[in-house]
Design a binder for these strands. Structure first.
Lengths: 151, 151
DNA sequence: TCATTTCATTTGTATAGACAATAATAAAAA
DNA sequence: TTTTTATTATTGTCTATACAAATGAAATGA
């Protein structure tokens, strides 16, 4: 559906504004679909994201600031996300012995198992969306989004 | 910045996944910039969105379901957004006399004034982003995002 | 040593989104 | 008319983001 239909707009929307609306709405759709995948596993997409980061550490503990650095939303509240993962036994948390200001977070076997079960579903989700584009278009879309952001 | 740098990823990211990350991160950047514009006016982007919808009604009252239909996030809580606009005297709310289940929401002079003051800043925000692309690229980006969502 | 500054994390208090449950009214059916 | 169903909006509870303030530990300097 075109963005005008989604917003039930009667007047044409300027192309510069349309980009923003298209990005916002596409983001919304992606998040909705992704949360549907995660729902049976009782984790949110943000919690999933933290688990992924921890798995990426390959056994090395991650402290809070490292996790935050690797998250999309840098200002989100890592402490409270980890709190919720702790309750579900998906991570462990302990104070770093060398520097007691730091926290060492590790993903547990249980957490890794959930990630493993989710892997094919997540890949399928990603591909089912990008399948609508050709290989060239996929590259082009990534390029345009980066150009749009940066310079 | 490329998405790999933002996420401090050491391994290359699959293009299908990269689209999702690029959309999420671009959305995040847009929202952040936009909130900076709105901050001095003490309204959130969602509240602004509701005000815009009400202005679009050109004097006709809008009920809750109409507002919701025109919002990007259809499941957001319109009642509580309107509550906050009411406190600031940006809207009025009264029960519809023909159908007392319905609510008639109208933007006030004060609300319209704020919108008017924001208009040039909002347009400037939109253009400062899209200026990085050529006219063709802007059309192409909109096209690709719509194609990515649909079909 | 003691005071000050910096660092790493946590907590408090707003905001909004998701979703289910409820309430009130109107419309339809018996 | 009375009961049932549908519509419209509100409320409750959980999630997360944003951002400022506070805490506690380490490093630095007088």
């Amino acid at each position: 559906m075109k963005i005008e239909e989604i917003l039930k707009s009667t007047i044409p929307i300027d192309n510069s504004k349309k980009i923003i609306l298209n990005i916002l709405y596409t983001h919304h759709m992606i998040a909705e679909n992704f949360n549907d995948i995660l729902k049976p596993y009782d984790i949110s997409s943000e919690q999933y994201n933290v688990l992924r980061i921890l798995r990426g550490q390959k056994g090395n503990p991650a402290n809070m600031s490292l996790i935050q650095d690797r998250m999309l939303a840098k200002t989100s509240n890592t402490t409270r996300l980890v709190d919720k993962l702790l309750i579900k036994d998906f991570v462990t948390r302990k104070v770093c012995s060398e520097n007691r200001r730091k926290i060492e977070v590790l993903v547990t076997k249980k957490g890794l198992d959930v990630l493993k079960e989710l892997d094919p579903k997540v890949i399928n989700h990603e591909n089912s969306l990008s399948n609508k584009l050709t290989a060239d278009e996929i590259i082009q879309l990534n390029h345009l989004l980066e150009k749009y952001r940066n310079h």
